[in-house]
Amino acid sequence: MNGTPIDDTLFTWPDESPQLIGARCTNCGTVTFPQQSSCPKCAGTELSRHLLAREGVIWSWTIQGFRPKEPYIGPAEFTPYGVAYVDLGDVIVEGRLTEGDPSKLAIGMPVELEIVPFETEQAGTNWLTYAFSPTGPAPDQGGVA
């Protein structure tokens, strides 16, 4: 896939198996995303680059139902999109979902990281961002998803 990450600190790219780039506090183990230079838990200042798991489960979700105002730069013609907090084990990360149908989303659903094109109205841009894509039903959904 061609394009430029919308922010080059968010994920490894180009990469066949891209990962989000976080930071891990060497003192208390807290993991942040994106990277931070100090730790909000222990106030430590030694944090190292830490690649996040590619798979996790939906911790909570919603659908963005209206076109956000600035600074949003998505297309003028709006399609509702899913947003979730995804539990990746050592950190819960917020991101867009590739699924925007509320009937197909549930807490506990397994998802994996994908790098996807991010469309805008600006001519000549070819942005990439990260999103999570469902890979199966939530455990309590009994396979109906």
Partner: peptide, 26 residues
Amino acid sequence: IGDWYGETGLMLTTQFFATKIQRYLH
């Protein structure tokens, strides 16, 4: 927070309240 957060449509108070109550109801 980096500009990407607003540009890609994640910086909305409405999303926060929705995801918080969604988890709470669950």
